[in-house]
Structures are given as structure tokens and as C-alpha cells.
């Protein structure tokens, strides 16, 4: 078997093509977001929002509206709750996030146990990369493209917000507005991708690529590029590996991402070690 076959064989199957394309697109937009999230110290927020949408999904099912709408409403609710509890108490933000998302997730579990449904609502969160319908694929790709375009257009504003919101406010741009603007982008991305690629993949994609890129560069534009490339490559390699090894596709993608991070970590340790040695010599 030659290398061309190795690449083209999985592509004969539409489900593989969709899995690769959708997880790459979601991976790219999540990677962009992850750069801002890890710099702002909001990494856990992706995790929190992903879980907090559960009651929204169940209620959406009961009322009969699309899952993403219900999920989105609860994502916003979670964000507002976290924000207001944090400003009115001295409890640290990570604890507040933990309280809010577990409570909302639990509400979701309670609602599920009281809802008669012909589908497994819990599994909406565990979207299945290999079972993406065409409609869902286009929806996710469309939303991701819009979010990515917005992030790239306003990247300088978002960066300043992460770096120095006080300065931003002092020149008359509302830091609070940008705060919620970024949160809404995050909520939209999560609700649009949960159903297709699933919760584990979304959480990992919102943290790992940005962290990997952070280890490798000190330039923000480069960081955006590295994060996106790492994320897309992980999606593609992970999907291929899952095909040939016959293992869970989402699992393979996340695992590969983790391996890349580990590689970047080793590289950065070696680099700083070497730098230290040479600087000692030069003195």
C-alpha cells in the first residue's frame, strides 16, 4: 500500500470526509478562541459552558425548538450567573464556574429523568463525529466561518481586552461590552459544535491548541497561526488514525492534540535549558 492509497482510502467514505472537514473547521475556530481564552485565564469557561447547555437542550426538546437555541440560551445564562456571582462575592472565579456549571448540568439530568423522549438527550452533548448529517455539517461550518471571520476582524480589540481592559476602558471603549462579546462568540461556537463533534472534543479544542502555540511563540499573530494549524492537523491526523486503528475518532483527535502539546512542551523546555546554558557561558 502506498502513501497515496493511505490518504485516499478513508476519503471514499462520505462519513470520513465529513468527520475530517467538520472537525477541522471546528478545530480551527476553537483554536482561534483558545488563544484568547488561555491568555485571559478563561480556559475552564469552555468546559463550564459545554456542560451548562444540557438543561437548555432538554427544554428545547420539550418545547420543540432547535437544540442549539435552547443550548445557547443556557450558555448565556451560565455566563451571566458566573459574572454576577463573581462580582458580588469574593469567591474565586474557578469555584464560581464550578458551582454554576455543575448545578445547571444537574438540572439537565433532573429534567432528562422527568422527560419522556424517544432520543437520548444526554447524548446530544456527546455528538458523534462520524454521524454528522449534511444539514448539521453545513450549519456547524457556517457558524464556525462567521465566528472565525469576526474573531480575525476584531482580533486587535480582543487582544487588548485580554491584555489590558483598564487601558481599553480609559480610551472610552467599553471593556464590559467586549467581555460579553467574547463570551457570546464562545457560546455560539460551543452550541454549534457540541452536536456534531461532541463535548470532549470541544473542551479540548478550546484549551489545547492555544496552549501549545503559547509554548512555541512570543508573537500573538504567530500564535493564532500555530494554534489553528495544530488544531487542524490534529483533526486530520486523528481522524485518519482512528480510521486505521479502528478507534473512537473524537478520542484519537484529542489524544493526538495532547501528544503535540507534549512535544511542544519538551521542545520549549529544551530550548530554555539551552538558552540558560549558553547565557552562562557568554557571561
Amino acid at each position: 500500500m502506498n502513501i497515496v492509497d493511505l490518504i485516499t482510502i478513508p476519503l471514499q467514505y462520505p462519513f470520513m470526509v465529513k468527520a475530517i472537514v467538520v472537525s477541522s473547521v471546528v478545530g480551527a475556530v476553537c483554536a482561534l478562541l483558545s488563544c484568547f481564552l488561555i491568555l485571559k485565564g478563561w480556559s475552564l469557561l469552555g468546559d463550564a459552558i459545554s456542560h451548562a447547555v444540557l438543561p437548555g437542550v432538554v427544554l428545547a426538546y420539550i418545547i420543540g425548538i432547535p437544540f442549539s437555541v435552547g443550548g445557547f440560551i443556557f450558555a448565556l445564562l451560565a455566563v451571566l450567573l458566573i459574572g454576577s456571582i463573581k462580582t458580588h462575592t469574593k469567591i474565586k472565579e474557578d469555584a464560581v464556574m464550578g458551582i454554576v456549571f455543575t448545578t445547571l448540568f444537574a438540572l439537565g439530568l433532573i429534567l432528562i429523568s422527568r422527560t419522556v423522549s424517544s432520543i437520548d438527550l444526554m447524548h446530544v452533548l456527546f455528538g458523534y463525529v462520524l454521524g454528522i448529517s449534511d444539514v448539521a455539517a453545513w450549519y456547524t461550518i457556517g457558524v464556525s466561518a462567521v465566528v472565525a471571520a469576526i474573531i480575525l476582524t476584531f482580533r486587535r480589540t480582543l487582544l487588548l481586552f485580554c491584555f489590558d481592559p483598564t487601558h481599553m476602558q480609559s480610551v472610552g471603549v467599553s471593556a464590559k461590552f467586549i467581555h460579553y462579546f467574547l463570551l457570546v462568540l464562545l457560546a455560539v461556537t460551543i452550541t454549534a459544535s457540541l452536536q456534531t463533534v461532541g463535548i470532549i472534543l470541544v473542551i479540548a479544542m478550546l484549551i489545547t491548541p492555544g496552549s501549545t502555540a503559547f509554548l512555541l511563540t512570543k508573537r500573538f499573530p504567530v500564535m493564532l497561526v500555530i494554534a489553528s494549524v495544530v488544531s487542524v492537523v490534529s483533526s486530520v491526523v486523528g481522524a485518519y488514525a482512528s480510521y486505521y486503528l479502528d478507534v473512537s475518532t473524537g478520542g484519537a483527535i484529542v489524544f493526538f492534540q495532547g501528544c503535540v502539546f507534549l512535544g511542544a512542551f519538551a521542545f520549549s523546555v529544551i530550548r530554555s535549558h539551552r538558552k540558560k546554558n549558553t547565557s552562562v557561558v557568554s557571561v
Binding site: Y13, M16, A19, D120, L130, A239, S242, D246, S248
Partner: peptide
């Protein structure tokens, strides 16, 4: 009840 098919399963299925 809660199984998740792998790519190999899908290939066999197709």
C-alpha cells in the same frame, strides 16, 4: 444501549 460506532464499524456497515 450507549455504544459509539468506530470508523471501522462504519466501513463494515457501508
Amino acid at each position: 444501549h450507549g455504544y459509539e460506532p468506530t470508523p471501522g464499524d462504519l466501513v463494515r456497515a457501508s
